[in-house]
Design a protein around this nucleic acid. Structure first.
Lengths: 132, 132
DNA sequence: TTCGCTAACGATAATCGTTATCATTATTAT
DNA sequence: ATAATAATGATAACGATTATCGTTAGCGAA
């Protein structure tokens, strides 16, 4: 089902990937759109969506399925996320391995596991200190 | 932010919870709607959505954030899910613990972790046998 | 270098899942 | 039974995403 993409180069796609890779706040498509709009005034939101799915298909970015709106991540190395109950932000959680999660899951599941994602919920550093 | 609900009893809510708890295919709101429609012809899709969020707030069911459409699960005990790349189905993966995932995450994350969800991707039993 | 093909674009309409509104119905305490 | 109001059904509204379509631009061949 994976499509073949990016037969041609485009400034918009470059800008979108650059933008995503230079930030760590896991922006939504709209966040990226508004972030690039000053630099590329003619940019269309449709183009952002189009390229984000394309880049995802090409394995260059990751889509984070948080409630409601999709967020994106330019870091394709294995890591997890925490969605803050208080501020709604999404934060990185880096662990040097998956704690044997896939291994264990493969043992108990009669199918084939090719990947996984983990979304923690709780309070980010700032909100935890602030609210207690 | 958790709301107080269910001050009154309703046949619709009972039916929705019953339906969800008696099946293991992690249906969408619409799936439940069509499943109950023959039994409760006057049922409205809005009522299904309303009660699903209410039941979720009450901790009686779980919402699974898969791509696009939300799915629901009547089993509130800790377990994980696999989304089949081939057929699109969502399947249970039961493990007797979290493999130390939360423990490890708490060590490396400067905030407070209160919960987590894991979504594996791959092939379900049937699709794995069929396609290889 | 220009030409032609068509991928990618921008603008916007359409779609889809979900939520809000509101008049009506039904549950429950009195 | 009655009154108060939670919950309902119908449907409009909403927000995120995708599809459409005419135009633009990347790139290989002439």
């Amino acid at each position: 089902m994976r499509k073949i993409h990016a037969q041609r180069h485009s400034k918009q796609r470059d800008a979108i990937l650059d933008n995503l890779c230079s930030r760590y706040d896991h922006p939504t498509a709209e966040d990226i759109y508004f972030s690039l709009k000053p630099k590329i005034p003619a940019l269309s939101l449709a183009t952002v969506y189009r390229n984000l799915s394309q880049l995802e298909d090409d394995g260059k970015i990751i889509r984070i399925e948080s409630a409601g709106t999709a967020r994106y991540d330019g870091n394709v190395n294995l890591h997890y996320h925490l969605s803050c109950i208080n501020c709604g932000g999404v934060f990185d959680i880096f662990m040097d391995n998956d704690c044997g999660l896939c291994q264990k899951a493969s043992e108990v599941f009669d199918g084939k596991i090719t990947g996984h994602s983990v979304l923690f919920t709780g309070y980010c550093s700032a909100c935890n200190k602030q609210a207690g």
